[in-house]
Write a protein that binds this DNA or RNA. Structure first.
Lengths: 152, 152
DNA sequence: TTCAATGCAAATCGTTTGCAGGAAT
DNA sequence: ATTCCTGCAAACGATTTGCATTGAA
């Protein structure tokens, strides 16, 4: 994992500022969801996260609020859609993490993260060339992971 | 456009072989869809393609058959899912085209194609490093295109 | 007190599927 | 003759939305 130390409380403070700037209310659900996603501590699909919250946690947040808040967190920059597969969206908590992309095993669903500064740099050059102002990107490499190749 | 000359008839012959190898039937709908997608001649969403076929063409193919056949064409390698945006899938006809990736304008939906051999090479290296056997990849850079930046 | 957020259930939208009739082998 | 494919409509699953209630300001 390319995880760095993150101060979740600090993050909640920033998110609070973000909400106030947008004249939105700083609710328990919204702040709780940050704790919950931080606790979950891995890539997630919303359905999965909703069930995990319902079954394992005291802090409850409804499905609709999770959908709505994840959208806000995306806008805020704490969460990203990283994989689109089989009409499902896989998100990750990105705060405190360096940028990375993903290898996705189509057999077992395993997700391998990788960092490549060179690829990042080349993308910037491409954008410059087209006068394109990039907001975010997603590089997914689909294939068969080492383990699945062996077990055939 | 990074389009090269393609012989659609040749392609249909290859697809026929592909179907026979799979013990599937070589139907009019399946071959017609190749002509239709070739005629359409740009990135497409299925809904869009289905409507276009219904309104503009004599050769009719139903929505379900389009969905089913596009899947076959993906397996065959003539069609690719290139962009996932707002829960929609954007496909392209890839035969006779060199590999490329996409800049996607989130304002106007414009799609800009680009080729970068260097990025391709770096991806191969990454896969080698992880003993990952790549099948296909998708690099989407979302942002604001030149025109939309100007018109603000 | 006011206005936005929540939770629920219903609606929506892209996509898939069951099935009866029709076409390919 | 057999088997697979098609088109339709219904089903599905992820996501969004309307609305009455609750909570933040």
């Amino acid at each position: 994992m390319i995880l760095m130390r993150v101060n979740v409380e600090e993050l909640k403070k920033e998110f609070t500022k973000f909400l106030k700037k947008k004249n939105m209310k700083v609710t328990k659900s919204r702040l709780n969801l940050i704790d919950l996603i931080a606790d979950y501590n891995k890539h997630f699909e919303i359905e999965e996260l909703v069930n995990w919250i319902a079954n394992h946690k005291d802090k409850k947040v409804s499905r609709s609020t999770v959908y709505r808040t994840v959208k806000l967190l995306e806008e805020f920059g704490a969460v990203k859609e990283v994989i689109k597969k089989d009409n499902k969206t896989i998100y990750e908590f990105v705060i405190g993490r360096s940028h990375h992309d993903h290898l996705v095993c189509t057999e077992c669903g395993r997700i391998i993260e990788f960092v490549d500064e060179e690829i990042e740099k080349l993308q910037e050059e491409i954008c410059k060339k087209y006068n394109f102002k990039p907001a975010h990107h997603r590089l997914e490499i689909f294939g068969i992971c080492e383990d699945c190749q062996k077990s055939k």
